[in-house]
Amino acid sequence: MGFRVGGLMTSKSIWITWEDHRRSRELAAAFACEYVCFISKRNRFFRYVILSIKTLKYVVKCKPSLIFCQNPSIILALILCFYKKIIGYKLVVDRHSNFKFDSRKSLNPIWFVFHFISNFSLKKADFTIVTNQYLKDFVDSLGGCAFILPDKLPSLDCTTLPVHHKRKEVTFISTFSDDEPILEVLSAASLLSNEYIIYITGSYKKYKSIEQLKKIIPDNVVLTGFLPEHDYQLRLASSDALMVITTLEYTLTCGAYEAVALGKPMILGNTKTIMEYFNKGALYTSLTPSEIAENIIKLFRDIELFQDQVSELRAELEADWNIKFSQIVRALNEM
C-alpha cells in the first residue's frame, strides 16, 4: 500500500473524526494523513444523520484508499465499516476507549444495540488500534485484528515554563465525569494545610452533584472551569505536580500523558493499567480522601526524585511508542 515510518508514500489516506481529540490530531500527523473533523452541535439523532451524510459525501469525493477513524463515535465506525467494501478502502479504527465493559451484561436494549454495533465494527475493521494488551486480546477474541499504540506524548507549548510560587500547587486534571473522584479530592484538600492549593480543571457546572460540591469546597481549592487550550497548558505547566484519577480499568488517561510530556510528578489512580504503563514518577492512590491527601504530602517530600523519574519515563515511553508505531506501519504495508 506504500507506507513509510512517519507517513504515507503514495496512498491517499485520511483521518476522520466527529470529535476534535488530541490523540487523533497527533496520530493523523504521525501517519501524515489528512485530518478531517466534522462537528455538529445538534441533538444526538440529527447529529448522527448530519455527520453521516457529510462523512460519506467527503469519502466519495476524495476516494481515499485508506481511512483511519476515531471511535468514539461508534456510529462513525459502523458507517465506515459498512461502506468500506462498497466504496473500496481499507479501514483502521482507533478505539482508544468507549468499550463500556460494565454494561456488557445489561438487559437494557440500548446497551444490547451498542455492543452489537461495537462487536460488528471490531470484526469488520481491517485493523483496530487499542492502548493496551487487555483490549488487544479482547478485540482478537472477537475475530478482529488489533494493534497496541498508546497515545503519543503530546507536543505542548509551555514545556519550559518556570515554576515560582509560595504554595505547593497541584492541578487535578478533570472533566467532571462519573469515573473521577471529585468529592473525594475536595475532602482530601480539606485535610491539607493552606500550604497546599489544588486547582481542578474542567466544566464543573455540568457536574451531577454541583450543589453538594458548592457546599463543601474548601478554601485551598480553585475550580478553573473550562480553559482554552493555551490557558489549560499554562495551568499544567505552572503546577508543581499533576493529579489524574479514574476509576475505569483498561484506560490510559490523557492527563497522565500530558504530565509526562511536561515532566511533572503525578498522583494517579491505582488501576492495574495505569500502574503498569506509568510505572515511575508517580504515587498511586485509592479513592479514600485520607490516602489522596497523604500521597500529595509524600510526593512533595521527595518531589525532586519524582521529577527525575518522570524524565526517565518520558524517554522510555517515547522509545516504546516508536517501536509500536513502526509495527503498525509494517502491517499496513503488508495489508
Rank of each mutant, 00 (worst) to 15 (best):
C145R: 15
P181W: 02
D179A: 09
L149Q: 11
P181Y: 03
A189E: 06
S155K: 02
R235L: 06
I200P: 12
I217F: 00
Y232F: 15
S193F: 07
E211F: 10
D137I: 00
E229P: 00
S209T: 09
I200Y: 03
I210G: 03
L191F: 04
P150R: 09
V185A: 09
L156P: 10
S190T: 06
F147A: 06
K136A: 12
P181N: 12
L213E: 07
V170T: 13
T201D: 06
V163W: 09
I148R: 12
E229K: 13
E195V: 13
F172E: 00
T224V: 03
D178G: 04
D179E: 09
I198N: 10
L156T: 03
E180Y: 02
K215F: 02
I182Y: 01
Y207T: 04
G202V: 12
K206N: 05
P162V: 01
I173F: 03
T171V: 15
T159H: 07
V170R: 09
N194I: 10
E211D: 15
G225Q: 05
Y204D: 12
L142A: 03
D137W: 08
I198V: 14
F176V: 08
F226M: 10
I173E: 01
L227C: 04
T159P: 05
A146H: 13
A189T: 01
V221T: 05
E211T: 11
P162Q: 04
F176L: 01
L156I: 09
G225A: 12
K152H: 07
L223A: 11
K208I: 15
